[in-house]
Computed example of a mutant assay.
Amino acid sequence: MKRVSNLLKSLSKNRRKGLAWLIDPEKTNSVPQFSWLKESPLDLILVGGSGLVASVFEEAIQSLKPLAGEIPICIFPGSHLQLSPNADAILFMSLISGRNPEFLISQQVKAAPQVAEMGLEVLPTGYLLVNGGELLSVHSVSQTLPLSNGDIDLVRATALAGKFLGMRYFYLDAGSGARVPVSPSIIAEVKRSVNCPLIVGGGLNSPEKVRAAYEAGADLVVIGNAIEKDPGFLAEVLDVKQSYNFIEY
């Protein structure tokens, strides 16, 4: 059952907007406290983190599953150790913005046999780190530098290369805790060039920034632990999403 791919394709095709929450179990106080998840209008839950070990990751997935209800849980892997048969899907990502073979292909080779055995829905995803020059934890772990918000031509060429290599989904990420998100001009150019479902995250810590990402062409916006710090933030962002989709919750 291709729940997540159908979701992303539907958002892109129908020009609707989706919202995902990225949960890093290392940065949350307690997964079981999220009893409100089942009733929320979130479209997707992503689980992952750059430093998670396998046991912590699996425990988080198992704890989230009964809380998520009908909301799909998708793996946002930081390494080949972050896999679980209890998830619904996996963003099978290649870090195409960097040149470190470990995250271009090596981690994927290590994960592939287990992913096949688990029967996870697989989403071939081109992952691009793009920001205003900040070096964050994701850059340290991946041993790569982000592409610049100011270098539209290079970002566009990188995304196109991913498309020509067969990637069907794209994720533009400024990095967790980024002060400056991916610029609207970058989002718009990548969306125009690849014409594929586009996910955007990192640094989207205000309704204004979320709206700017949607306006530029993001199909699915990802917000992080700002929800836990300020539960009211989720309501604000959902209002932004609602204004594009014209539906009532």
Rank of each mutant, 00 (worst) to 15 (best):
S10H: 13
S10N: 02
S10G: 14
S12M: 07
S12V: 00
R15P: 00
R16I: 07
A20V: 12
A20D: 01
D24C: 01
P25N: 03
P25V: 13
E26V: 04
K27C: 12
K27F: 13
T28N: 12
N29Y: 11
S30Q: 11
S30R: 11
S30G: 14
V31T: 10
F34D: 08
F34N: 13
F34H: 15
F34C: 08
S35R: 15
S35I: 15
W36S: 07
L37F: 09
K38A: 13
P41M: 05
P41F: 15
L42W: 14
L42R: 11
L42N: 06
L44F: 07
L44M: 10
L46M: 11
L46T: 11
V47H: 00
V47L: 12
G48N: 00
S50G: 13
G51F: 15
A54H: 10
S55L: 04
S55G: 08
V56R: 10
F57N: 08
F57W: 10
E58S: 12
A60F: 12
A60D: 10
I61M: 11
Q62L: 14
S63M: 12
L64W: 03
K65W: 09
K65H: 03
K65C: 02
A68N: 09
A68R: 04
G69I: 02
E70T: 15
I71S: 06
P72H: 03
C74Q: 12
C74G: 10
I75C: 06
I75V: 06
I75W: 01
P77N: 01
P77M: 06
G78C: 13
G78K: 08
H80Y: 15
L81I: 03
Q82M: 10
S84L: 11
S84M: 11
P85C: 10
N86R: 03
D88L: 09
A89M: 06
A89H: 07
I90F: 06
F92P: 01
F92S: 03
M93G: 02
M93T: 07
S94F: 04
L95I: 05
L95H: 02
L95T: 09
I96N: 04
I96G: 06
S97W: 02
R99D: 12
N100H: 03
P101T: 09
F103C: 01
F103I: 00
Q107M: 04
Q107Y: 05
Q108R: 15
V109R: 09
K110M: 10
A111I: 08
A111M: 09
Q114V: 02
V115C: 08
A116P: 02
G119Y: 11
G119S: 07
G119C: 09
L120A: 14
E121Y: 05
V122E: 14
T125S: 04
L129W: 02
V130L: 05
V130I: 15
V130Y: 03
N131P: 08
G132Y: 14
E134V: 07
L135F: 08
L136W: 05
S137Y: 11
H139R: 07
V141C: 14
S142W: 05
Q143H: 12
T144R: 01
L145M: 09
L145I: 02
P146V: 09
P146D: 07
P146I: 05
S148N: 13
N149G: 06
